[in-house]
Design a protein around this nucleic acid. Structure first.
Ligand SMILES: [Zn+2]
Length: 284
DNA sequence: ACGTGCTCCTGTAAGC
DNA sequence: TGCTTACAGGAGCACG
């Protein structure tokens, strides 16, 4: 599951082979992944040029010369791989039966061969949407980008101080703050010393300041590390992220709490169907 | 309106 | 060696 830092890594990898290039061909190997592909998907993409590729939360956003917008979401197991003459794909890295979309992009004049981009997604929780000019998409109701100035302690406090649901669940809500997932919420709550079970309305404004700071710091570090590689995340060139070596609590049940003044171990609990990892002594 | 839980799907690992 | 169960980065949807 790619979260914000992983999607950022993917976006950086795709930009040089997608931005300012034309779709020479688009191949769909099935009619749906999480959702059906948009009507006339291939026809609406072929011969258009991507004028800009960017990331919004966990979405990749490609603005097209046609005025339409291609939205791509990786779900849990979505992965893009780039095959070029100079940097050929590792054929053993992914199972080709889960290659659902293939983009062939135009070559630059000093390049030999067109870059080919494979979208592979075993669980098919990812999706692609094509928005007509002015059409709203699933990314329109998202909360603030956590790394932008529009996300701050006071903004977080304002958004959560009336909510009765646990802070863990609230931080996963993309309409509150957009881009966090299970890993980085667990890590940020540990660094802010707040229990994932705490009611959101019981988190003080001072704690929101701390939490906001820790969210930004954790995401920054993870982006610098190229994201986290769990089962199947890799950058578009196959490179692995290494932030997973820096996890303090995520997937570390029964291991010692990393705080030097603490002798407790990390506990795993379930909250709304998903694992939370935390230290009972350090996080209240 | 809000909060919780189920669901989509495949792959892997653990337990018996 | 099976077979069965639990769990995995997400988030839309149906309930109460
Ligand atoms: Zn501790």
């Amino acid at each position: 599951m790619p979260e914000l830092p992983e999607v950022e890594t993917v976006c950086k990898g795709l930009t040089p082979v997608m931005e300012n290039r034309e779709f020479l061909s688009v191949t769909l190997n099935r009619s749906d992944i999480r959702f059906p592909f948009p009507d006339n998907f291939v026809k609406r993409l072929e011969a258009t040029t991507i004028t800009r590729l960017s990331r919004r939360a966990k979405f990749l956003v490609a603005e097209l010369s046609s005025g339409e917008t291609l939205l791509m979401h990786l779900g849990m197991t979505g992965r893009f791989s780039i095959d070029t003459k100079t940097s050929p794909i590792d054929p053993d890295a992914t199972n080709p039966k889960h290659d659902h979309v293939i983009f062939v992009m135009s070559a630059l004049h000093n390049e030999q061969g067109a870059p080919t981009i494979y979208y592979n997604d075993p669980r098919r929780f990812g999706f692609m949407e094509l928005l007509a000019v002015g059409e709203t998409g699933r990314h329109d109701t998202l909360g603030p980008e956590p790394l932008s100035n529009s996300f701050s302690g006071p903004v977080l406090y304002e958004a959560i101080h009336t909510k009765k649901s646990p802070i863990k669940t609230t931080l996963l809500d993309q309409n509150i703050v957009a881009g966090l997932g299970n890993i980085y919420v667990c890590e940020a709550l540990f660094d802010a010393r707040i229990s994932p079970l705490r009611k959101s309305c019981d988190v003080s404004s001072e704690e929101c300041d701390t939490l906001c700071t820790e969210i930004k710091r954790t995401l920054d570090l993870a982006i610098k590390a190229g994201g986290s590689t769990l089962k199947d995340f890799a950058a578009t060139d196959g490179a692995l992220g290494y932030f997973q070596h820096s996890f303090k609590v995520y997937d570390r049940a029964k291991t010692p709490c990393p705080n030097p003044d603490c002798d407790d171990t990390i506990t795993r609990i379930k909250q709304s169907g998903r694992s939370s990892f935390y230290c009972l002594k350090c996080q209240k």
